[in-house]
Design a protein around this nucleic acid. Structure first.
Lengths: 336, 336
DNA sequence: GTGAAAGCGCTAACAT
DNA sequence: ATGTTAGCGCTTTCAC
């Protein structure tokens, strides 16, 4: 069933059907009804692929989400969707696997859907100028920024917390509560990503407060998932090094860490405090509740859209928006 | 940058560029290199929209996932992707919000991408014949089946656990452990979905074992999320009715329920056992670990693909595959 | 081996 | 108010 079939059956031209399809006023009511009912009868579905092809512009914004079903993104996505709707634009979302290249995906969508802009949710922090040249419309990086790339500040936009500083604050808080032997659960020391940034904050906090850094208190899970975190912490316990607190680079890793600690006979927070970063919904339901520096997901979604639309509508320049993580106090830490 | 631009710049025809693009052998090597380097230089990205439009067939299968970032789907999606790759097909995934219509989405994709088949992950259980007529290629429902619809068994395929029976088994297990006052946390009693099915199994188990059903022990959260489940259980506690076990229709609700119980001064499993269904990864990290009847996600992904390909390749008929949930024993239940 | 031409389903001038 | 025509970017016969 194509527009042609409908036209033939209704005894009108393709253009007339197209007009009906697009709700144009210049069609006789009688004809409109005839066409409409014919479409209904045949379950006609217009081919967006063809529409996109011929269209030269749109009011569409793309959202490329890296990492399938990451619970941390759920609320950001919801907010972005709402804000885009509110602004009268249309959102098309594309999820890609962690292995895929978000820039390329954005570039493809830009051409195919005639996007006005793109929001990248989760992505690499080391773009080069050559790479982003692929995308010819404004874009903003949400939840990460170009920490390891060589992009100049006036070439891209982003909305994110300061990972290094946030980690610093978490470890600092542990210090102020009397902790001196503070272990760290990270993904990798130099993954050029959030793990490295937050690990950097951990190191700086120790240094700032004159706490001797002990490599035996740092465990690398090698990834960001829960089984990895669990095993890493079990291994940490094997080392039989004393520590009174564990700083985790993410909530999901912290949840697995708490389980590993308990399985290893270490009670939280009595024998070990656990402090992390993110603010996952799930962290409010663990026992004990997780103490975490929570990312303001709603604000991040709003700022991302606001920044992108400012860029699209030409009334603002590139900027890197920094938002503040807020303490969500659970029961996983205690002063000693 | 279009194929035309490349052709002009290389001094060849569009057809030749198209041949290079599609890796055809009938292009002089020298020309191929020239075209290839020209594409590279200009960051040329072929327009899939245009390719799809002209193409009459494909080896593509669609995956429509209902509910953005549902952690339960993560492993199923991964498995489906792998199996489709293995079979030499291509997978295109589309996530839709719970409010959207998956059948329509599948129908659109079918036409635009010339799909050979569709897998629906999560969806309504009440399709009608008229509805599914929209989709003209084979499809299989993964993780749900047509419990409330009027589809005849030879018109659709599905892969799912038996929700009613699984709930029955969970409640039966609690009964055998000595529990008689068994509460239930559900979404709604008649949502024509998984909540109603599992609630039915709960009721049947009580009846089978001659346990008097008490409506005061049933709480409806109204939705499937954690805040809803948490408040529902807090409300249950307010009723001051005695119960020694709580059956939850999903793991995520059970996790919130455990938190609510503890906050209400009820320890799990000492004062109340908690039993649920799903097998979320997170359920292995709670304290206590959740005892649940786990859906075999890997098998479900495999069976979905196997069934779909059987349908596509014409060597098998529609079937409703039933898979068994397996007990994952945590520490959230105890005999009394 | 390469090019010319038709056409995928649709929109958007431009006529009438 | 409606039809005719060109063309979006690409693939695919069919010639040469």
């Amino acid at each position: 069933m194509t527009i042609k079939d409908i036209a033939r059956e209704c005894g009108v031209s393709i253009s007339t059907v197209s007009r009906v399809l697009n709700g144009r006023p210049d069609v006789r009511e009688e004809v409109r009804q005839r066409v409409l009912s014919c479409m209904q009868r045949h379950n006609y579905i217009p081919n967006n692929t063809a529409r996109d092809l011929v269209k030269t512009s749109s009011d569409t914004v793309g959202l490329v989400v890296r990492g399938v079903s990451n619970p941390f993104y759920a609320n950001i996505i919801k907010t972005i969707q709402q804000e885009i709707d509110l602004a009268g634009y249309t959102l098309v979302m594309q999820q890609i696997h962690s292995g895929e290249d978000e820039i390329k995906c954005g570039a493809i969508m830009e051409r195919e859907k005639k996007l006005r802009g793109v929001i990248f949710l989760g992505g690499r922090s080391d773009y080069t100028d050559a790479e982003i040249a692929l995308v010819n419309v404004p874009f903003v990086c949400c939840s990460y920024t170009n920490s390891y790339g060589n992009l100049s500040a006036n070439r891209y936009s982003s909305v994110s917390i300061e990972d290094e500083e946030t980690a610093f604050r978490a470890v600092e808080a542990l210090y102020h509560m009397g902790h001196r032997r503070i272990a760290a659960l990270i993904s990798e020391k130099d993954d050029r990503s959030v793990s490295e940034l937050r690990y950097g904050g951990y190191l700086r906090a120790l240094k700032t407060y004159g706490v001797e850094q002990d490599d035996d208190l740092v465990v690398c899970a090698g990834n960001y998932d829960m089984p990895g975190a669990y095993h890493a912490v079990r291994e940490l316990l094997q080392r039989e090094k004393e520590f009174t607190a564990l700083f985790c680079i993410s909530d999901s890793m912290a949840i697995a860490a708490m389980r590993a600690l308990k399985d290893g006979g270490v009670s939280v927070p009595e024998s070990c405090s656990v402090f992390s970063i993110d603010g996952l919904e799930m962290a409010e339901y663990t026992d004990p509740r997780l103490t975490t520096l929570s990312q303001p997901t709603e604000l991040m979604g709003q700022e991302s859209v606001r920044t992108l639309l400012g860029l699209i509508e030409g009334n603002s320049a590139h900027k890197q928006v920094i938002v503040q993580a807020a303490l969500k106090a659970g029961g996983s830490v205690r002063p000693i």
